[in-house]
């Protein structure tokens, strides 16, 4: 079977979080901004959280998601 897929919804989600790295979004906001069902979005958000690209947190009783920068960032000398 053909399993080739370009995960367009994932791409759209990443672009949205990348464009607004400081903002937090609820599932409803994301559903409205991306014009997608919440049911379609939930597995995508799960995957992005698993990859560490976004994180989930609670604020005023609401579940929100925001962009998370990579943890690893190291510098090293470059010899001439």
């Amino acid at each position: 079977m053909n399993t080739r897929r370009i995960p367009s919804l994932k791409m759209e989600c990443i672009m949205l979080f990348q464009s607004n790295p400081q903002s937090a979004h609820s599932l409803e906001d994301l559903s409205e901004n991306l014009d997608r069902n919440e049911e379609d979005l939930e597995p995508v958000l799960e995957l992005l959280m698993k990859q560490g690209i976004i994180e989930q947190f609670q604020k005023a009783g609401k579940t929100l998601y925001r962009y998370q920068e990579p943890e690893t960032a190291s510098e090293f000398e470059m010899d001439p």
Partner: peptide
């Protein structure tokens, strides 16, 4: 972020020259 999601592999990393400091920089996702 785009590349790790496209390939769905274990990691993506960028090794880059930092022209300001003259040092190499490594940023890793996954």
């Amino acid at each position: 972020d785009i590349s790790i999601n496209l390939v769905e592999g274990p990691f993506s990393l960028v090794l880059i020259k930092d022209n300001k400091s003259g040092k190499g920089k490594l940023v890793t996702r996954g």
